[in-house]
Design a binder for these strands. Structure first.
Length: 493
RNA sequence: GGCCCCAUCGUCUAACGGUCAGGACGCCAGCCUCUCACGUUGGUAGUACGGGUUCGAAUCCCGUUGGGGUCACCA
């Protein structure tokens, strides 16, 4: 339909960055969002992106987008698109990237070579099958499942063939993670495993690539989910082995499902795209997500600008939060009313198209008026599109209320109302309200007497927006046609 | 199971060691009203347990319990 379509993504929000805490270029904040393109963009990933974005914008820093696609088996281009779409939908823009790790394999290889040369990594010839056996054995005996070090001190050339590269993890001492959210967390190096840093097919693995990239890209703050906390000491060992500066870490609590387990698809929606399709507003998603684990006074509804002004990473709660759809719905409903109706009309358009409801070529102004009648009773755009249906096409009467209200005894009254409305020219809701009230008074009647029958006639349902608003949006012609149709329906009964 | 993290209403969260433990969602009831909503008023409901420290503990310490995460040639 000829509805105006605006480019989905603008870099506009980048300009809302507060110039607070701006520092010299040398210690400028650099954060990154580094999703792996192995599926849909999880809502938890979105929250990570959001926190990084906020942190960068608050500190006048940069945010880098990096696609971690070293898992050649599971990574897809489609998933990369999903990530970008999600970021754009939420207006989370980035300053650099997207980089893809598959474009940077030679960089990782250089550092792997360096580790081998410096005797900080070694070739491991154990097969997946052998490793599996070792692991099962260890688990059965009830103790640590780490690699037994069989190939750790192999003579050069002692074995040949397929091999992985393992990092020789230091085994003495302790590692302290000074976490921005959790405070200091200590790990014992005896727990550290000799991680595989290069697969037998030559591709580097996650723990190596994150470290190399974060170091090379000058990342100063790593903000990510708590599920990465136990990876952190391993990564710190790698930073040190490679002689790179260790960044600051901040591990945010996870989002849980109602059963208190990590939120996933089986809890219902977990992908951004689903929320988009369910008709949630971008503003509401951001608002809801930021309130999960953080609060400011007794405020519930925040614009991005307000979040930027008040939010702070170190005020973030440490405990995991359960995703509450009811609360999201409420937040969304607030935003449905808060955004300008023209804006809602604009965003509603695709949902109307999906229901094939725009054949009437509605103009923007008309659509806005319609939105005004619907927004108080629509939690999402999908709900609004549903409720809008009667404006666009003729429907079957909802049988129960039709039988109850469209009865022979209201027929004469319907006739009178029809005649009266036929004589009216001003179909603004205010005028209609006044004139009909006055008219009914002369008839010695109350609005109540005719409200429900009229409602069924005009909207086919027993629940609807106010009658006068409906008439205004419908216009004189449709209003009369529908009342007439109801009169005939009554007669045919 | 090892290691790590966490713990205030059902849920999201407030509370410099001194508050009748506050707000929000949900739920219930009243009001508003042409229906449904919106709005509004009120109600329901919580410091996991046990020890300390202290004149005084939701708050600090220890333990228990509970929940979560993580232990891959995934990220």
């Amino acid at each position: 339909m000829g509805l105006p379509r605006r480019p989905q993504f603008t870099g506009l929000l980048a300009m809302t960055a507060l110039p607070i805490g701006r520092k010299k270029m040398t210690d400028q904040v650099r954060v990154r969002f580094a999703p792996s393109p192995t599926g849909f963009l999880h809502i938890g990933g979105v929250r990570t992106a959001l926190y990084n974005w906020l942190y960068a914008r608050q500190h006048g820093g940069k945010i880098i987008l990096r696609i971690e696609d070293t898992d050649l088996e599971r990574s897809t281009d489609e998933a990369v698109e999903w990530i970008l779409d999600g970021m754009r939908w939420l207006h989370l823009d980035w300053d650099d990237g997207p980089y893809r790790q598959t474009d940077r394999f030679d960089l990782y290889q250089q550092d792997i070579d360096r580790l081998i040369t410096e005797n900080k990594a070694y070739r491991c010839y154990c097969t997946p099958g052998e490793l599996e056996v070792m692991r099962k054995e260890a688990l059965a005996k009830g103790r640590p499942t780490k690699y037994n070090g069989r190939c750790r001190n192999l003579e050069d050339g002692a074995r040949d063939g397929d091999h992985t590269i393992r990092f020789k993890a230091p085994q003495t001492g302790q590692i302290v993670v000074d976490d921005m959210i959790r405070g200091s967390v200590m790990f014992d190096e005896t727990q550290m495993d000799d991680l595989i840093i290069r697969r037998s097919d030559g591709s580097p693995t996650y723990n190596l690539t994150v470290v190399v990239d974060d170091a090379l890209m000058g990342i100063t703050h790593v903000i990510r989910g708590e599920d990465h906390l136990s990876n952190t000491p391993r990564q710190i060992q790698l930073y040190e082995a490679l002689g790179y500066e260790v960044p600051r870490f901040g591990h945010m609590s996870l989002i849980l499902g109602p059963d208190r387990e990590k939120l996933s698809k089986r809890h219902g929606a977990a992908a951004v795209s689903e929320f988009m399709e369910m008709g949630y507003l971008q503003e509401a998603m951001i608002n809801y997500l930021v309130r999960l684990g953080w609060s400011h006074e007794e405020q519930e509804i925040f614009t991005v600008e307000q979040i930027l002004e008040h939010w702070s990473l170190d005020e973030q709660k440490k405990s995991a939060a359960i995703f509450d759809h009811d609360k999201l719905n409420w937040v969304n409903a607030q935003w449905m009313k808060k955004l300008p109706p023209e804006e809602i009309a604009y965003r509603l358009a695709p949902f109307l198209e999906k229901r094939e409801l725009v054949q009437k070529t509605p103009d923007r102004e008309w659509l806005t008026k319609m939105v005004l009648t619907l927004r108080e009773r629509s939690t999402t755009l999908v709900v609004m599109a549903q409720k809008a249906e009667f404006y666009f096409r003729e429907l079957e009467y909802d049988p129960e209320p039709a039988e109850k209200f469209l009865t022979a005894d209201v027929a004469p009254l319907m006739d009178k109302v029809y005649e009266f409305l036929a004589g009216q020219e001003n179909y603004s809701q205010e005028a209609l309200h006044e004139s009909i009230k006055a008219f009914l008074e002369t008839e010695g009647l109350k609005l109540k007497a005719i409200a429900q029958p009229l409602r069924i006639a005009l909207t086919y349902r027993k629940d609807s927006p106010g009658l006068f608003e409906v008439m205004e949006v419908l216009g004189k012609e449709s209003t009369l046609a529908r009342i007439d149709k109801a009169r005939k329906w009554i007669r045919d009964q």
